[in-house]
Nucleic acid binder design. Structure first.
Lengths: 188, 188
DNA sequence: GTCTATAAACGGATAGAC
DNA sequence: GTCTATCCGTTTATAGAC
């Protein structure tokens, strides 16, 4: 039951993928034009400026990730929640050549407008607060280990995961992502 | 006793700074031309292609960081070594708008030649192996806490630091770097 | 070594026909 | 909505004079 995607949806999807591959300054309307099969002027019809495009891309991406987080069964033990979360990061790697869109845009932030910064910040905060709850649960259960406040532990964990996808792609291996996961799991 | 910098040295220094600010695809020969005060064609004289320029930039940057690591007194307790190391990362932040050159290039790797990938990989490995020794020492002394093998703990720590400079810049705060440091230090 | 001049492609963006 | 046509600045890079 695959629904046909509108041109607008196709553009947005390809824009997200291209940015995860090459960053904001590493792709052009022309790239999108060739991928979708419409002229660049048609893309400007939907997204007047590149800033508009990247902002909508972040919002779509964020929405997808948020939905995935809400889909995680709350009844699960915390270590299994973390496993699912790490697996999500593994999926963003794709064929080993992509990183998290918001990690990428955080790197590109020096060339992006304030509106995008705020959207990326919101993504970071949402992920960190979700992880903070999981860590708090895990400590109570004894399935995870975290030192200090769950909030600062969560910021560290999220940073480690962002850094690890970067390294995983750099070295063509998923092992670095697994290193991080293991570091927060209690040994039985 | 400030030595006059050659044009070549000035170009390289500015190229490093610009990439730490805006990434590989976020600066041009024209930017360098204006900063140094020579025409772009003169820059091509020293660095025929942008790929040549970025490769030399990484090598210079790596050399500087390696020298800084070697300058850390080996007799120091491990927690103090880690403090010095984190402070180095804090310095790269500059006015809060720069990140580690090799973290940035890891994000841009999809648009860079294989030679640069190898140079960035070498930078990662050197830092991780230095950190692994510090962690091993710290565990033995009881000044640091690390679980599992020092090598995988070091990869996680390095990833967390890279991720934290990214977040520090994104949120205009150095607090996130300190979160990471605290997470590996033993509480007395 | 540094310059002028220029090439040739690419960048985001717009006007107006259909 | 999509196209053709076009604008105009930018970008990397080279040739050749000084």
């Amino acid at each position: 039951m695959e629904t046909k995607l509108t041109v607008r949806e196709q553009v947005l999807d390809h824009a997200i993928t291209l940015m995860m591959l090459r960053g904001y300054n590493g792709f052009s309307y022309r790239d999108l034009s060739e991928l979708v099969g419409v002229k660049t002027s048609s893309i400007h019809y939907y997204f007047p400026s590149k800033d508009d495009l990247v902002l909508e891309a972040v919002n779509q991406y964020s929405g997808e990730v948020m939905r995935a987080l809400q889909a995680v069964d709350p009844a699960l033990p915390a270590n299994e929640k973390l496993t699912k979360y790490t697996r999500m990061f593994g999926k963003t790697l794709g064929n080993g050549d992509q990183i998290c869109l918001c990690g990428m845009l955080a790197a590109d932030i020096g060339t992006l407008p304030e509106t995008v910064r705020e959207a990326v910040q919101a993504f970071f905060r949402a992920n960190e607060s979700w992880l903070a709850k999981v860590l708090a649960q895990g400590v109570e259960e004894g399935t995870l280990v975290a030192r200090g406040k769950p909030e600062s532990a969560a910021r560290t964990l999220f940073a480690a995961l962002q850094g690890s996808v970067l390294a995983s792609r750099l070295f063509h291996t998923k092992a670095r992502l697994e290193d991080v996961e293991a570091m927060w799991k209690a040994v039985p």
